[in-house]
Amino acid sequence: MMVAERWFMRNYMIKRIIWILPMLVGISFFAFVLITLSPSDPAEVALRVNEIVPTPEAIVSMREHLGLDKPFFTRYVEWILAVIQGDFGNSYVNNKPVFQEFMMALPATLYLSVVALIFIIFVSVPIGVLCAVYEGSIGDIFVRAFIFLATAMPSFWVGLLLIWLFSVQWGLVPTSGMQASNSVILPSFILAQTYIATYIRLIRNNMIENKQKNYVLYAKARGLKKRIIYKHIFRNSLTEVLTALGMSIPKLIAGSVIVENIFAWPGVGRLCVSAIFNRDFPIIQAYVLMMAVLFVVCNLIVDIYSALLDPRLRQAE
């Protein structure tokens, strides 16, 4: 990169990073405010979950215990300060630190998401490229019909059908849990399934769009071989794909909720859903905050490396 560009990139990155801070404040505020939306009194909920009769005295003492009697902004600031230090409070259900519960569940979800990502890349890229190269062929038409159906199919339904086929009927993989080494295959594939369809379409459409462009015509006019021309096309399609892929990582992590439920996978999605059933607000709050922060951070990273990849964007502003 030339000197001027390097300077521009640095400014761009600093600008973007600075802009994150008010976003994070806004998100944290929203996550905090969320609890006040709840029609139920957190103190009452906490009591009920622990099977203590919510008498007025018990409620008052629980409110004090949870610090709910302090004024709003005091609570917000205290909460933020605690959060920054990693203290999300304790679960209403088992009184363990929320942060600990989260950290125990997170690796499972990350494991699932990474394997799903591998599936996505290794299935959708070859198929997408082939569809673009052999545009209009029977295979292409077949794949497009399949994609259309795949985006309309509820993922939990596909999950159930595949479990029945591979687990119950053929016994190839376990139906639930994380114990066996091959138990990650089915859940991560189902998690990947919706994205695979989307990415095949994205890569295919991107490459076909590029095929119409003037630089492809000139490349053909120069007598370059097809293989080389496709290399150019693919490289041009790559930015958009990589950008989308970057944003899919947090979506995969957030979207694992259903898959973890079906497979009893001990990840953060399952943690969140049971917290919702138990009205365990601290956990729900922590989940919402962590996920939102993850999204914003990923967004930032994706923006920056998009600029790095596309030389035109570096001069955009």
Partner: peptide
């Protein structure tokens, strides 16, 4: 050898 009309878009923007 064919020289195209629109020079601005004739080359691969990424290289």
């Amino acid at each position: 050898c064919l020289i195209l009309q629109d020079a601005m878009t004739a080359f691969d923007p990424r290289l």
